[in-house]
Amino acid sequence: MPRRDPAAFAEFVAARSPALHRAAYLMVGERQLAQDLLQESLTKTYVAWPRLRDHGKAEAYTRKVITTTAITWYRRRSWNAERPTESLPDTVAGGHDDAVTQREWLWTALQELPPRQRAAIVLRFYEDLTEAQTAEAMDCAVGTVKSQVSAGLAKLRDRLGDRFGEHADDLLPPTLMVVTP
């Protein structure tokens, strides 16, 4: 019978938690919340540990749990009404004012997206997952990923349009280009 091995699990946490933490942060936009999300997601991974035959691939499972848990938390807590929006750290190396401003606006706009759209965009553009991998992580169909990415990018474009006018279209990838298989 497969057993839970706390030592092997702890090794996995030590090795992979920094990367998973970054993904969690991008999905929720708040440091403490991201840490709580990662703690909960890794606990679920430990519960499922005997079923994750290849422990080297447990990261994919944890990423899926982070995504689905973040979406669930959002539904339960109505984060839109309660959560603060953290500002983007000003650590751009060599960036000029326009670039900094664009990133600030884009970061704020990203945090205002509905959670499924935000998750889809994080998984596709930060994690560089394919549409199929994103669908697996979000526990949904590939078609849903396409529509969530498309809708998310459209909202970002609209939001940025308020600030950058017609140039906003140049700041983000066209929807059809980014949902290629």
């Binding site: 933490h21 703690q39 750290p89 884009l106 990838p173």
Partner: peptide, 25 residues
């Protein structure tokens, strides 16, 4: 690259997470 750069910048600003593995177990 703006979208990816923005997310990279935000993610790179994070400190290592303070996790409690014993509590998870």
């Amino acid at each position: 690259e703006l979208l990816k750069d923005t997310m990279d910048q935000a993610a790179d600003s994070l400190l290592a997470p303070d996790l409690d593995v014993q509590a998870m177990v």
